[in-house]
Structures are given as structure tokens and as C-alpha cells.
């Protein structure tokens, strides 16, 4: 299954890209699984996702927790806690 992932703020900077399309390996069921897989994939991922507790996520536009299923989502966004206003 392929998945679009979008990165924001310092997650985007550490990943060195704003978005990518990945072929998900079997066994990646939740947002937390995805973050752990990205952290283990390469040095950039290790730096961006060294502290999973500081990562927030949205699946197809809805903010979710780390245990949220990815299912057949079109886009997962990964980002730090928001700081607007």
C-alpha cells in the first residue's frame, strides 16, 4: 500500500522534505507504527522522530493520537505541537 506523508515545521526541516509517497511495509497499522518505522528507516528519520512524544499527527485532515489506525488513508501529516495565534 502507498501512503502520502506530509511534514511540517522542524519535522519537515529534519526530514529534508515537505512530503513523500512511501510504500508501506506489512505490519504498519497505526500512526505510532509509522513514526517508529520512519525513525528506523534512515538518519533523517532518526533525527526527526527521536522523541515520538513530541510528534502530533493528522490522518486525512483529522487530528489523531499515536494509536490511530492508518487504514486506507490518503495522507498522514506529522508535525510538532502547534504554536499559532
Amino acid at each position: 500500500m502507498t501512503l502520502d506523508i506530509a511534514y511540517f515545521a522542524w519535522v519537515r526541516e529534519r526530514m529534508g522534505m515537505a512530503a513523500e509517497t512511501v510504500a508501506l511495509p506489512a505490519g504498519i497499522a497505526t500512526v505510532g507504527d509509522l513514526v517508529r518505522w520512519l525513525a528506523a528507516r534512515d538518519a533523517r528519520g532518526a533525527r526527526a522522530f527521536a522523541e515520538p512524544g513530541r510528534i502530533r499527527a493528522a490522518v486525512d485532515g483529522a487530528m489523531v493520537g499515536a494509536d490511530a489506525p492508518i487504514g486506507d488513508a490518503g495522507e498522514v501529516a506529522l508535525f510538532p505541537p502547534v504554536t499559532g495565534g
Binding site: F8, V82, G84
Partner: peptide, 14 residues
């Protein structure tokens, strides 16, 4: 609106 904007809306300051 301003209290929740700061914690709920996808915006990041640098």
C-alpha cells in the same frame, strides 16, 4: 476562539 486557536489549529512559529 483565540485560546483554542493556539492549541488546535495547524500553525507553527519560527
Amino acid at each position: 476562539l483565540i485560546d483554542r486557536l493556539k492549541t488546535d489549529v495547524m500553525l507553527w512559529k519560527r
